[in-house]
Design a binder for these strands. Structure first.
Lengths: 193, 193
DNA sequence: CGACCCATGTAAGCAGTTACATGATTGC
DNA sequence: GCAATCATGTAACTGCTTACATGGGTCG
C-alpha cells in the first residue's frame, strides 16, 4: 500500500560511492544531485536507522576534534538491494506541474499577467541553464585532461545533460507560448472593436 | 506547516469551467489534464467537503434516473480565491526523478542493461508523443473551422505543447545518452585488452 | 560577538495513495 | 449473466516536509 520509499535507495546509492554520515548525505544531495533529487534531515536520519535495522548499511561512530560523527557504509546485502533496484525499469513519474495547472485555468486573469509570469520563468530557466552549461564545460575540460575517467562518469554526466535539454525545452516553450498569447489577445481586441 | 494542498485549486479550476460532481472532476482530470495533473477519489471527496465548509463551492443534490448525484459549483468567494492563486507565480517544482537517480548510480549494472532501459523509455515516449501530436492536429483542425474559438483555448493548447516539447527533449536525451554509453563502454573494452 | 558551518536528531502534521465497500444501470 | 460505467464515499497508511531543539567550532 502507498508509495514506495525512494529515499532508501537514494541513500543506498550515495553510500555506494563512499561511506558517509547523515549530514554528508544531505550535503551530497544539495551539491550534486539537487537538480533531480532532494532529501532533508527529517527523512534521512529515520531512514538511516531503518536501513541499519535491515542490515543494508553499517554504522561506525567516530569522534574527531570532539565532534561526534556517525559514519554509515553500505553492506554486501545493501549492495545487492541497490543492484536489484537499479535493474528494474523505473515507473513513469507522473509529476503534478502546478505551473501548467495554472496555465490551463488562466483565462480568468489578464493575458499580460500570464505573459509576465512566462517571462519571469524564462529568465529563471536561462540563469539555471547557464550554471548547468558551465558545469558541463568543467566536465569536458576534465575529460580532455583525462582526470575524471573513472567508470561511471558518463552516467553522472548524462543526468546533467538531461537538465540542460529539459531547460532548453522549457525556454522554447515559454517563447512560443508568449508569442501565441500575444497573437490571440491581439486578435481578441480586433474582434472587440 | 507541510505542503499546501494543491488539490483544492485543481478542483476549483475544474468547477470554474462548469459545475460537476466528484466523479465528473476525476473524469475530467483523467481525460483532459492527466499529462500534468492527477487526482483520485480518496482526495477529491474529502477536499470537496472542505471546500464546501469554506464556502468556496456549493453543493446541490440531484436525483436523475434513480441515481444520486452531488453537483458542486464554484461560489463568488471561490472564484476570488482561484484568481488570487492564479495571480501568484508558482514556485519552481523540484520533482524527484527516479529514472535520473538510477542513471546516476548505474555504474554497478551492465551498460547493456542501461541501454536497454533507455530504449524502452524512448519507445514509450514516442508512443505518447504520437498521441499528443494527434490531439494537436485535432485542435488545429478545430481552429481552422473556427469551432473552438472560445477564450482560453490558447492556455489549454499550450499545456499540450509543453507535453510535446518535453517528450521530444526526452527522446533526444535517450538518443544521445545511448550513443554516449556505447562510446564509453567500447572505449573501456579496448583499454581492457 | 555574530554569522556560518558542522552535526544529530525529534515531533507534528498534512498530502496524497491504495484498498475496501456498496449499489444501480447499460449493453453484449 | 457478466463486464463496464456511473456514482459516492471511508479507512488505513506512508512519504515527505517543516519546525523545533541543541551544541561545538571557526573566522572576521
Amino acid at each position: 500500500m502507498a508509495k514506495e520509499n525512494k529515499t532508501k535507495y537514494a541513500i543506498l546509492g550515495v553510500l555506494s560511492l563512499k561511506p558517509a554520515s547523515g549530514y554528508d548525505i544531505k550535503k551530497f544531495c544539495d551539491e550534486t544531485i539537487a537538480h533531480f533529487w532532494q532529501e532533508n534531515y527529517g527523512h534521512i536520519y529515520p531512514v538511516l536507522k531503518q536501513l541499519e535495522e535491515e542490515q543494508w548499511v553499517e554504522k561506525k561512530t567516530e569522534i574527531s576534534e570532539g565532534k561526534l560523527k556517525h559514519v554509515y557504509s553500505i553492506t554486501a546485502r545493501g549492495r545487492e538491494r541497490l543492484v536489484e533496484w537499479l535493474s528494474v525499469q523505473p515507473e513513469v513519474t507522473k509529476p503534478r506541474y502546478e505551473f501548467l495547472l495554472k496555465m490551463f485555468f488562466s483565462k480568468d486573469i489578464p493575458a499580460q499577467m500570464v505573459i509576465q509570469r512566462l517571462n519571469e520563468s524564462k529568465i529563471l530557466c536561462q540563469s539555471i541553464l547557464k550554471q548547468y552549461e558551465s558545469m558541463e564545460q568543467k566536465i569536458k575540460m576534465g575529460l580532455a585532461n583525462k582526470t575524471c575517467l573513472e567508470s561511471g562518469w558518463a552516467y553522472r554526466y548524462s543526468t546533467l545533460r538531461y537538465g540542460i535539454l529539459d531547460l532548453k525545452a522549457k525556454i522554447a516553450w515559454c517563447d512560443e507560448t508568449i508569442a501565441l498569447i500575444n497573437r490571440v489577445s491581439n486578435q481578441d481586441e480586433e474582434e472587440g472593436l
